[in-house]
Design a binder for these strands. Structure first.
Length: 274
DNA sequence: TGAGATGTTCACAT
DNA sequence: TATGTGAACATCTC
């Protein structure tokens, strides 16, 4: 679930409690979570202070004061929460950061897909391949029209699959892919090289605007997403396509249908999305 | 009861 | 090279 807006919401929530706090101890309950050596991870992280939390696409980057960075990807169900000192691990807690101020930061992951890796700060693009090849952040200044349109022209993929590919644009997942296509009145099946300049311009605008709007709304809580303070997002109430199969399209009353594109459930309105 | 769906990325196949 | 498929895993629904 966590796509860019949800990860950004987690980042902002965690900032308040985790930044500038010293990590007193670390409990690793599910070592497979790590893409780094466990002993070394503990050795380097314990005693350090989180000086800043950044985000790149769907990755969280915990900048430590020892020139190392914890790169964290939540994948499907990874979740951070801030807990009181006496709180016991939850059923799916995989790691616990014990802070010097007495609080604990839990990392929970029901499906165990999430990963963490310790890298040299500034070197994440080299040490984490998918960060190295990742497309621009979906903001006005980074996702330029020239880049976007040229790249669409170079592929024949169904546009839905293209949007999910992080190498094209960073941070879009299944929910927001369906949403921006609905907003742009483009069928998820349309090959990207058949998208006109005008449509590309519109699609790009909708990506930038919709993701910013989702961040403002604290992300979408579709199955289980909650922010670091345990709050749900509100964006799920503002979705037009995702999760609304069988319901009428808000634009023209046509029935939204669910198909599979790139192995993913895809909801759209065949009447207005051409 | 058990098959299918859930969503992200990677490894591998074509 | 570009694109497509299945696996990693746990839980819920029908």
């Amino acid at each position: 679930m966590p796509e860019l807006p949800e990860v950004e919401t987690v980042r902002r929530g965690l900032k308040k409690y985790f930044e500038n706090e010293k990590i007193k101890d670390l409990k690793i309950i599910y070592p497979k979570l790590l893409d780094s050596d466990r002993t070394e991870f503990i050795e380097k992280v314990v005693g350090s202070t989180v000086s800043r939390i950044d985000r790149r696409g769907k990755f969280l980057l915990f900048r430590l004061d020892n020139n190392l960075t914890i790169v964290s990807h939540l994948r499907m169900e990874g979740r951070y929460s801030v807990e009181a000192a006496q709180e016991a691990p939850h059923k799916h807690t995989e790691m616990i950061f014990e802070l010097e101020n007495g609080k604990q930061v839990f990392y929970d992951d029901t499906r165990k897909f999430g990963k963490m890796k310790l890298v040299k700060s500034g070197n994440e693009a080299v040490e984490v391949k998918s960060i190295g090849s990742m497309g621009p952040e979906p903001v006005e200044s980074d996702l330029t029209f020239d880049y976007f349109y040229n790249r669409l022209q170079k592929s024949k993929k169904a546009v839905k699959a293209w949007l999910l590919d992080q190498n094209n644009v960073a941070g879009i997942g299944n929910i927001y892919a369906d949403e921006v296509l609905w907003l742009s009145e483009i069928s998820p099946l349309r090959p990207t090289n058949e998208i006109s300049e005008e449509e590309a311009d519109n699609l790009r605008e909708n990506i930038i605007r919709e993701l910013a709007f989702a961040i403002e709304n604290g992300g979408s809580t579709v199955h289980s997403f909650i922010d670091a303070s345990g709050h749900t997002g509100h964006m799920q109430d503002k979705l037009h396509a995702y999760g609304r199969a069988g319901q009428p399209c808000e634009r023209d009353g046509g029935e939204l249908i669910k198909i599979r594109v790139a192995q993913r459930g895809t909801t759209y309105c065949p009447k207005c999305q051409k």
